[in-house]
């Protein structure tokens, strides 16, 4: 359904803007129909930039994004695209204009996408989707954003995407601002929609959320993909030293952290070297010109140290 091909976003930095900083560096992946793919990365990994490029809020500097076999940059009519591809952002509180009632996010959609539908008919539809996502319309509609909780606001944004009847959803860190007791409901809503055929790019820094929700997983570091594949395979048999480090660092209530060494100092990456090279316990001069190797069915890794058995050679 959606395919990202060699996507890059470079910014000019340094004196006189002569150097290039790649926020996203030659990233390729695809999301199939009715699939949740999680894009996992820490801050500065470029995950949000990828999401915004898919939503055409940022222009890529290289590569392309293909939606239903069409390059999205060639779609002149933005509305046509946004009818099918929608997004939800990280901060539910800043996603609403504070001076208007929340109903406006729905009204905006009627005005722009469905002007033929009458207001009465539309308000029936709004009530229906609000109920569908597990909220009580009479308690919610007609309120101002500050009168609702983050979880409610975030779920209303999902309802909004539903009303448009989008086929693809970019969900960028949609749970990170929510409390533990409500975040899981938002995830479950997303999963139910996926089962009805929605495709989702689930952007997160939280591995546990990615594991719970997604079919496939992409691990991103400094703008490049390190490892990707079937979620269970990536989590059960992590191959890249970076994925391993992430999984060892995630706090859980099952296992206490081992006292393994974590390098915190990332230096500037040398061109053609693996981006994780400087923090990697195995990093050496051979970590160059890395390409993706197929380790097993739907499990790929970009690391020269991985052997056929999934072990690392020193």
């Amino acid at each position: 359904m959606l395919e990202v091909v060699n996507l890059s976003k470079a910014y000019n930095v340094g004196p006189l803007g002569k150097e290039k900083f790649y926020a996203v560096d030659n990233v390729s992946f695809h999301v199939a129909d009715g699939e949740i793919v999680s894009l996992i990365g820490e801050s500065g990994s470029g995950k949000t930039t990828i999401g915004k490029m898919i939503l055409r809020l940022i222009k890529p500097t290289g590569g392309k994004i293909i939606f239903n076999s069409v390059d999205i940059q060639s779609i002149k009519n933005r509305k046509e695209y946004y009818r099918l591809v929608q997004g939800i952002f990280q901060d539910p509180f800043s996603s609403y204009n504070p001076i208007f009632k929340i109903d406006r996010i729905f009204e905006m959609i009627r005005e722009e996408f469905y002007p033929a539908i009458t207001k009465e008919e539309w308000s029936k539809r709004v009530k229906k989707v609000v109920e569908d996502i597990g909220l009580n319309p009479s308690e919610i509609l007609g309120k101002f954003p500050h009168q609702l909780s983050g979880g409610q606001l975030q779920r209303l944004l999902i309802a909004r995407a539903l009303l448009i009847d989008a086929k693809f959803l970019v969900a960028d860190e949609i749970i990170s601002m929510l409390d533990a007791s409500t975040r899981i409901d938002v995830l479950n809503t997303l999963i139910k929609l996926k089962e009805k055929g929605l495709s989702v790019l689930f952007i997160t820094h939280d591995l546990s959320l990615g594991y719970y929700t997604s079919d496939r997983t992409i691990i991103l570091y400094r703008g490049s993909i390190m490892e990707y594949g079937d979620t269970v395979k990536v989590f059960k048999k992590p191959l890249h030293p970076y994925t391993k480090m992430l999984l060892e660092s995630v706090p859980t209530t099952q296992k206490v952290w081992s006292n393994s060494y974590i390098s915190l100092h990332g230096r500037n990456v040398l061109p053609s070297f693996c981006k994780f090279y400087d923090r990697c316990p195995l990093g050496d001069s051979t970590c160059k010109n890395v390409s993706f190797e197929k380790f097993e069915e739907s499990h790929f890794v970009a690391c020269v140290k991985v052997t056929g058995e999934g072990e690392h050679v020193a």
Binding site: D91, S94, I105, M108, F113
Partner: peptide, 23 residues
């Protein structure tokens, strides 16, 4: 984000300025 949200709701630049930014 609400400016971005208006944009992906298909709003024109002019409407975004009038309704989202100016107020």
């Amino acid at each position: 984000e609400y400016v971005n949200l208006a944009r992906i709701s298909g709003r024109s630049t002019l409407k975004i300025i009038i309704y989202e930014i100016v107020p």
